[in-house]
């Protein structure tokens, strides 16, 4: 059975301001969705809310994973169910190597399933990490560097994709993974995501620009404006946005400033 992430009539506020205004969206394992929209339309708020960031308050509606509400689950519990968020701004953890971090994350998942689990052995882990890095054509020296500490924008995004590959979630949200990347870095990151996409992974690509969709081909495109999804369609919707920009969306659906809660 394939996993499903279902968002129902979701209303979310941040610091007392209502940002999401009734979002409905369903992403299944094996599908690729793109969520597009102008800056400030609520795309990143949706991503952070799905992952359970404590600053984002659900006022109304629900988020379901395989039919079960996950609103009461903490971020780590959601992750262990099979959700993954590739961050727009990955956070530096000085002194913790990429390898050590990924191994700890794998072990945390194993122990959550079986408290007696001894964790992945070091040789087994090395083999796994090496295979993933080969797959993503990454230099092995990444493994020994401190997580995101002094990384360039492109390096940070590549390590996000490495984590995605190593942790093997069911549904992954890529939050503006294309922002801040030059065209080569963008291509490499997108190829990584394409290589991982398949029947066991559902992807929600959040982006402002159409250009990442030259590399990652979504089956579904959604347009968000003022905290709601206002249009959904096939891959051609992205091309329409590329051609015409967001003005026509604003004209058709725009309602002015966000409302207070």
């Amino acid at each position: 059975m394939s996993a499903t992430l279902e968002i129902r009539n979701l209303h979310v506020s941040v610091e007392g301001r209502l940002i999401l205004n009734g979002v409905n969206l369903t992403v299944r394992q094996g599908e690729i969705h793109a969520l597009m929209g102008p800056n400030g339309s609520g795309k990143s708020t949706l991503a952070n809310t799905i992952m359970g960031h404590p600053a984002y308050i659900v006022e109304q509606g629900d988020i379901l994973f395989d039919g079960q509400s996950i609103l009461d689950l903490k971020t780590d519990e959601r992750a262990r169910l099979g959700l993954f968020l590739a961050f727009q701004y990955p956070v530096a953890i000085p002194g913790v190597t990429v390898a050590n971090f990924i191994r700890t994350a794998i072990n945390a998942r194993r122990r959550a399933l079986d408290p007696q689990d001894k964790g992945i052995s070091i040789p087994e882990f090395r083999k796994l990490l090496k295979a993933k890095m080969d797959f993503l054509q990454m230099d092995y020296n990444f493994a020994g560097r401190y997580l995101n500490d002094g990384f360039s924008g492109g390096e940070k995004k590549r390590v996000e994709v490495l984590q995605l590959a190593a942790l093997e979630p069911k549904i992954a949200i890529l939050d503006e993974t294309d922002s801040g990347l030059d065209i080569d870095a963008l291509r490499i990151v997108a190829e990584g995501v394409n290589a991982l996409a398949g029947p066991s992974l559902g992807v929600l690509v959040i982006t402002h620009y159409q250009r990442i969709l030259n590399y990652i081909k979504p089956q579904y495109v959604h347009i968000m404006l003022e905290g709601r999804i206002v249009e959904s369609g096939g891959a051609d919707m992205a091309l329409k946005l590329e051609e015409k920009g967001y003005d026509w969306v604003r004209e058709k659906y725009g309602n002015g400033a966000p409302q207070a809660v």
């Binding site: 780590d76 992750a79 993954f84 953890i93 401190y146």
Partner: peptide, 20 residues
């Protein structure tokens, strides 16, 4: 939030930052 989004619980996340 970043560490927990990878499946580490809050205590493991704190330990990770401190050990770093």
């Amino acid at each position: 939030f970043y560490l927990m989004s990878r499946g580490l619980d809050e205590e493991q996340s704190n330990v990770m930052v401190v050990s770093g």
